[in-house]
Design a protein around this nucleic acid. Structure first.
Length: 289
DNA sequence: ACCGGGACCTGGAAGC
DNA sequence: TGCTTCCAGGTCCCGG
C-alpha cells in the first residue's frame, strides 16, 4: 500500500495530534514487533513516560523521536499498515480485527497500529548522525535519500542507475538507490518520462534518468497535495480517511484504458515479478523515441 | 559486487 | 455454491 506520499500524509496528520504528548502505556504484540528482541516489553520500557517529538520520514520509513533520547520508534507500514489516531473517549474502543499495537497517550487519546498482512513493523532503534549531521534510525541507515529531500542529488542517482544492467523500473524500486518510490509512482513517473519499464539502466542517458527522477518527485508532490492514493480501505490517513490521488493516475492500474497522450490502449506486463502499466506508443522499450 | 527469484502474510476476486 | 488459483501499495535473503 503505502509509498512516500501516503507515509508523508500520515506523518503530517500524526504530528498535528501527538507531538508533545506523553506516552502512558503500550499494549498489543505479535509479528509487527519481530525486530524487537523483547517484544512488547521493549516498547513499554523505551516508550512509557517519554514525550513524543515531531515525527520524521525518509522514503517509506517514518520514525518517532522521543524528547531528549538517542533512540526512536521506527514505523514501517509494509503493504497494509495503518496508523490511526483516536480521540479520547470515556471507554477505550475494543481492539479491531487487524489492530496489533496500541499506544496510550496522556490526554486519553490512542495511537493504533493496524496491519492486515503483517509485513509492517514497529521497532525501537538507536538514532545516529549521517555525514551531513542529520539524525537517522540505525535500522534505516541502508536506504538512499528520497526525491523530496532538500539534499537529493539526481545526477548522482542517475549515474548509478545508468551503470546498471537491471531494468529501470526495478532500479526505481530499489530503496538503497532512491527511497520512497513504490509500484504506483514508479509507473506514473515512467509514463510521464515516456520510458518503458523494461529498459535497462545502461540503455538510458543520464539526462533521461534525471528527468525520470524529477517526474517521480513531481507526481509524489501532487499526490501529497491530494492526501495520497487509495484504491480501497487499505490506505487511510491518521484520521482514517482515504486519499484522492487515485483519480489522477494516468498509468497504474489502467490496462486497456486509452492513453491520455495518444489514445492507444495501455498495456500491462511483468517486470521482475511486479506488474507494469505502460503505453506501447509513448513508452518505447529501447528508450530511444 | 551484482542480479533475479522466491519467501514472508492475509484476504479479496476471478476462474472452474 | 464451493473449491482453487491468482493477485496485491513492500522488503529481505539466498544462490548463481
Amino acid at each position: 500500500m503505502p509509498e512516500l506520499p501516503e507515509v508523508e500524509t500520515i506523518r503530517r496528520g500524526l504530528n498535528r495530534r501527538v507531538a508533545g504528548r506523553q506516552i502512558v502505556g503500550v499494549v498489543g504484540g505479535g509479528r509487527v514487533l519481530r525486530h524487537n528482541p523483547g517484544g512488547i516489553a521493549d516498547l513499554q520500557a523505551f516508550l512509557v513516560q517519554q514525550t513524543i517529538a515531531p515525527l520524521q520520514r525518509r522514503g517509506k520509513f517514518m520514525w518517532m523521536p522521543l524528547r531528549g533520547q538517542d533512540y526512536c520508534l521506527v514505523i514501517h507500514l509494509g503493504m497494509s499498515g495503518q496508523v490511526i489516531w483516536h480521540d479520547a473517549t470515556v471507554e477505550d474502543p475494543p481492539f479491531g480485527r487487524h489492530e496489533r499495537v496500541r499506544i496510550l497517550l496522556d490526554d486519553g487519546s490512542i495511537l493504533s497500529f493496524n496491519d492486515q498482512r503483517m509485513f509492517g513493523a514497529l521497532t525501537i532503534s538507536l538514532l545516529q548522525k549521517d555525514s551531513l549531521g542529520y539524525s537517522f534510525p540505525k535500522i534505516a541507515a541502508h536506504i538512499g535519500s528520497d526525491p523530496l529531500e532538500a539534499n537529493f542529488a539526481p545526477e548522482l542517482v542517475a549515474q548509478k542507475m545508468c551503470r546498471s544492467s537491471r531494468r529501470i523500473k526495478t532500479l526505481l524500486l530499489d530503496q538503497q538507490i532512491v527511497s520512497g518510490i513504490g509500484n504506483i509512482y514508479a509507473d506514473e513517473a515512467l509514463f510521464r518520462a515516456r520510458i518503458h519499464g523494461l529498459c535497462r539502466g545502461n540503455e538510458l542517458s543520464s539526462a533521461q534518468v534525471v528527468d525520470l527522477l524529477e517526474q517521480a518527485a513531481q507526481v509524489m508532490r501532487e499526490s501529497i497535495a491530494q492526501g495520497g492514493t487509495s484504491f480501497d480501505e487499505l490506505y487511510v490517513n491518521a484520521a482514517g480517511e482515504p486519499g484522492y490521488f487515485a483519480r489522477s493516475l494516468q498509468a497504474y492500474g489502467l490496462a486497456d484504458k486509452p492513453c491520455v497522450n495518444c489514445g492507444q490502449a495501455l498495456q500491462k506486463v511483468r517486470v521482475d515479478g511486479r506488474s507494469h502499466y505502460f503505453c506501447p506508443t509513448c513508452q518505447v522499450e529501447s528508450g530511444k523515441i
